[in-house]
Nucleic acid binder design. Structure first.
Lengths: 107, 107
DNA sequence: TGCCACTATTACGCAAAGCGCAGTAGTGTG
DNA sequence: CACACTACTGCGCTTTGCGTAATAGTGGCA
């Protein structure tokens, strides 16, 4: 199974999770996701997800100048984003529990 | 989060899991998945998955006449399918563990 | 000076896959 | 004869992750 397909529908949640810890900019979010174990995530996917979540009203955004490269566009969760995180995390927990029991039956 | 997106990349594994228990035909697989908790799975998705897995050489297929409706096209796992199941299940386990730790950090 | 390498973002288009819906068809019930 | 349930197929839509290219700033090295 191509693990990239597994990200469908979950990358939003993963991005919300790292931003819930603390604000971050695109490049930083990519690094943190990869360090967390999602080492195959593409940078374009993360940038796209950030834009999508921002457009959906879940994120705040502010630009910060950097002394070691170009400017950085930081993103952070607002109330909508925190609500989205909570409900997505719950949905994910239920779904993964369902899959776990399904796989256990097939053993 | 739309839980239908979560199925992407996982429906294959779910179908392989129910067929690993015992052979089944499309309509039957749909029912068993829904009973297992994947109540939102669409029938067209399952039929498509069965065809795709069969085309990929993971399934055997045989038609059985039914006395309570049209004929039934049964599917079962062959060696390729069992191998696919094993590797997909392992990939899924690793992925869900990664997500679990990511969500735990964000608490 | 010129050439990389790293940081950082955006835009374009592709491909996979689940789903809605329509269509076909067999069986049994009122 | 209309309807409901079973059972399968095909078409087109949408979402979404990804590959690739383009743009741009900074710093190191020969």
């Amino acid at each position: 199974m191509d693990s990239s397909q597994l990200l469908k529908g979950v990358l939003d949640l993963a991005v919300l999770a790292v931003l819930k810890e603390r604000d971050g900019y695109g490049y930083d979010v990519v690094r943190r996701l990869r360090e967390a174990g999602l080492d195959e995530v593409g940078d374009a996917s993360v940038y796209g997800t950030l834009r999508r979540l921002f457009k959906a009203g879940a994120l705040t955004s502010y630009v910060v100048a950097s002394d070691e490269g170009p400017h950085r566009k930081y993103y952070g969760l607002n109330d909508v984003g925190r609500g989205m995180y909570a409900s997505s995390a719950r949905t994910w927990a239920e779904f993964s529990a369902t899959m776990a029991s399904l796989l256990k039956e097939a053993e």
